[in-house]
């Protein structure tokens, strides 16, 4: 049995949480394509899901391919990919599955996500402004401006996560 859902997340940690809740209900993730999730009916709670942000799509980056290989050699299963986000899962009986387990790596992960969203957001604002200046139809200007909003919001959200991850550092290694 297959089920499809379309959903948009600003916060990938909420996305992971949702995927894990779906998994606990017996819907195991099969594929993610352009924010459309395909689930397959399976054993409830058999796997735990985790996501990571690749440097680039694997076809263009050796580094991304070797990252995926490494994840697989460490006992995780590569499920799917959507743009630069890669989805992995691991059997629950192998213990809790978290991709990042210390503040440093979590912090740099948040930074990468913030940068990616920030760049897309700023690029869209720049296009909107330059179109405005060139007197291009206001509809186009607005559409770029509107597209930039979710990305800028996500970047803001992740800068907050970076701060939070840094906060404890004065006391804990």
């Amino acid at each position: 049995m297959i089920m499809k859902r379309t959903k948009w997340f600003f916060d990938h940690e909420k996305e992971e949480k949702w995927l894990n809740e779906m998994g606990k209900d017996g819907w195991q993730l099969k594929k993610v394509k352009a924010r459309r999730y395909t689930f397959e009916r399976g054993k409830p709670g058999s796997h735990e899901y985790g996501m990571l942000l690749l440097d680039a799509v694997p076809a263009l980056s050796r580094n991304s391919r070797s990252y995926i290989d490494f994840m697989e050699s460490s006992g995780a299963e590569y499920v799917s990919r959507c743009f630069r986000w890669a989805y992995f899962r691991r059997e629950t009986d192998q213990g809790p599955f978290r991709v990042y387990t210390d503040r440093d790596s979590l912090h740099s992960h948040y930074r990468r996500v913030a940068m990616m969203n920030g760049l897309i957001g700023v690029a869209n604002v720049t296009i909107a402004l330059s179109n405005l200046e060139r007197g291009i139809e206001i509809g186009w200007v607005l559409s770029n401006a509107i597209v930039s909003l979710p990305f800028l919001w996500a970047a803001y959200l992740y800068v907050g996560k970076m701060r939070k991850a840094k906060k404890d550092e004065a006391l804990y290694e």
């Binding site: 985790g50 990571l52 990252y67 490494f70 994840m71 460490s74 006992g75 995780a76 213990g95 809790p96 599955f97 978290r98 991709v99 990042y100 387990t101 210390d102 440093d104 790596s105 979590l106 740099s108 992960h109």
Partner: peptide, 10 residues
């Protein structure tokens, strides 16, 4: 319990 992402970076 080291996460694979943390280990990869390290």
């Amino acid at each position: 319990n080291m996460g694979p992402g943390t280990l990869y970076g390290a």
